[in-house]
Amino acid sequence: MSAAAVAPAGAERECQKCGRLLDEVGRCWVCAPAAPAVPLNLSMTNVQDATCECIRATDALAHCAQTEAEARSTLDLAEAEALILGVDGRNEAERKAALRLRLRDEYASLDAATAAVRQARRDLDVARLWIDGLRYQLRLLEVHRAPRIGGE
């Protein structure tokens, strides 16, 4: 288990190494290893790798979004069924809390799916930045190799 492990449910989510609060995906940005280095030297292999990574990240995001939609639909259906069967409580706040407790597994699934979507979106952003970096390098090479006006 990594140093930035998530604390048990209900407890504050803190890094076991430094004690700082973890982000929404359970990562300590102080102790977590840096993002993997991506090669920004312009080569056909790196362009192909960046393109493949962007495609993979797009597919992963689509899959995570579908999983999140299914989790949300399951939660909505479970809430409707619970409301039809009746929820105990003296007031709206108690009924809402009772409903939340009754459906804690569905809420946990939705929370996990939402966190996966955020991570997939971040991965796609990194892949797009990789492509952009290679594109800017190519543009810089084009500018430096272009014939200059005036015979210079």
Rank of each mutant, 00 (worst) to 15 (best):
A5C: 08
V6L: 14
A11Q: 15
E12I: 10
E14I: 15
C15E: 12
C15R: 05
Q16R: 10
K17L: 00
K17V: 02
G19M: 09
L22N: 03
D23Y: 06
G26Q: 08
R27K: 15
R27G: 06
C28M: 13
C28D: 05
C28P: 06
W29L: 15
A34L: 05
A35N: 04
S43D: 10
T45E: 14
Q48G: 05
T51K: 04
C54T: 05
C54Y: 03
R56M: 04
T58H: 13
D59Q: 09
H63W: 01
A65Y: 03
E68A: 09
R72C: 10
T74H: 13
D76S: 15
A82K: 03
I84D: 12
I84P: 00
G86S: 07
G86C: 05
G89M: 12
N91G: 11
E92M: 01
R95K: 12
A98T: 15
L101N: 11
L103Q: 06
R104Q: 11
R104W: 01
E106C: 13
Y107L: 11
A108R: 10
L110A: 09
A113P: 07
T114M: 02
V117L: 05
V117W: 05
R118S: 06
R118H: 09
Q119L: 12
R122C: 01
L124D: 02
L129N: 02
W130D: 00
I131Y: 02
Q137H: 15
A146S: 13
A146W: 04
G150M: 07
G151F: 00
